[in-house]
Amino acid sequence: MAQRIDVKDLNIYYGDFLAVQDITMTIEPKSVTALIGPSGCGKSTFLRTLNRMHEVIPNARVEGTVEMEGVDLYGSDVDPVAVRRNVGMVFQRPNPFPTMSIRDNVLAGVKLNNKRISKADADDMVESSLHGANLWNEVKDRLEKPGSGLSGGQQQRLCIARAIAVKPQVLLMDEPCSALDPISTIAIEDLIGELKSEYTIVIVTHNMQQAARVSDRTAFFNIAGTGKPGKLIEMDETSTIFSSPSEKSTEDYVSGRFG
């Protein structure tokens, strides 16, 4: 179910502005890949090209290829909607649908896929997804209550449950813990550790300890200056990046000397 992603010579533009330049990387299946780097270096932009979410912004476009198990996501016959059903995403701020109950939130993506499912199947799916997101025990008695009534950390885990309910191949996380307190952060990090046995996970984080704790491989992005494009400086085993990176700027960044 988890899939491998091959990015080749990817340039990302907003209109004429080159935001991210010349990314080539391989993301291994059933592993956690962390994207780190200073603000504005294009990590989130790059993450969003992996499920074509950057196209929500007018005039955004890419050059190069992003292949998922050999299929180019930007092929002319590929529907972005289909890509997004395959690649789940969790955002910086928890965003459960406020008008839906906890149960309906988990089922939101499943219902979008136009599958008619029986109530029993739906119940099973809600339970397994919430178990998968380590939220079941906290919400099992109030599934019909609105999702917006949960705490921030619980809402974020609800969003993860919603994302994994549709059984995606890949899970993208855009700073999933930056709006959460330390306890909730640990809960999410533990969850990431469990989820990687089934999904390919790519996580953007500003927290280098977090990258060191949760990821198998780490990619360091940097930017030469304002208005310049962001670039991938290096990518390696997380332990290597944090102990003996090959680039000077990576070492400066991970040791806290800038950024």
Partner: peptide
């Protein structure tokens, strides 16, 4: 974005 990311 939540809806779009689910493939809406």
């Amino acid at each position: 974005e939540a809806a779009l990311a689910l493939g809406a």
